[in-house]
Amino acid sequence: MSLAHNIFNTSLGRKYLMALTGAGLFGFVVMHMLGNLTIFAGPAAINEYAANLHSLGPLLWVARLGLLAMVAIHIWAAVKLSAENKRARQVRYEGAVQPVDEDRKSEIVSRYASRTMIYSGLIIAAFAFYHLAHYTWKVPQINGVDADFEEFYVHEEDAGEEQVAFVTVLPEGKEGANGADVYRMVKTGFGVWWVSAFYVVAVGLLCVHLSHGLSAMFQSRGFKTKSTEKLINRFACTASWLLFIGYVSVPLGVLFGFVK
């Protein structure tokens, strides 16, 4: 039996893949949130951050392809594992849980987050696709405003009301290659209430997903013991809340005018 067989074709191997890709995606989610928060430091900060990211060139593509591979493996393993789970238990119990010992029901009945990982995960994936179409591919039909984000550039000469920041000096005749005005895009994008609402719901689900996933990944890789369990669970809970607050602060900041 080869290494690849033992990793890709067995239950425990796929749980490893879930845990490892999950950890990688968690890393991305943390970095992305930190990047987002630069918006509170003003237009120049976030536009400069975006320009720096884009200046990475081939490295950016390595990161993007890496993320894409992680997402693909994570979803593939999840779908396969949960199909096996469905097949393994096809009959539900009729009896409602009435434990003889008091206060035992909560232990016997699995936690909501752990029961709904596949659903929260698939909704998050759908949201991520929308989010990419919204801010990365800048599809004007789905942003809910009468504007094309593709045209939001940092202009050096346009010094009117619309201008929000300078981050790079324009080379001669290269206006199109100029840095995107991320600040104005985010502000316009989240100004649409339903876009922000979808965002908040999706981020909420992401954090529910992580509240279980961040703890389960330690179990799948065999690091969890009774003595570290409390710490791991607290980490999962704290990290999920911090991410939720960090992410949600951006659309709420836009809607309530904290982002000037």
């Binding site: 490893y16 096996e84 097949r87 238990r89 699995s110 279980h212 179990q219 799948s220 013991t225």
Partner: peptide, 27 residues
């Protein structure tokens, strides 16, 4: 099926086998 770390097994086990052993098996 596969383990989704819900902990129900450990809760009903008449011999109170700990979920830790699943982590040990993973290791």
């Amino acid at each position: 099926g596969n383990c989704t770390v819900t902990g129900s097994c450990e809760a009903v086990c008449p011999k109170e086998i700990s979920l830790d052993f699943i982590a040990r098996m993973n290791r």
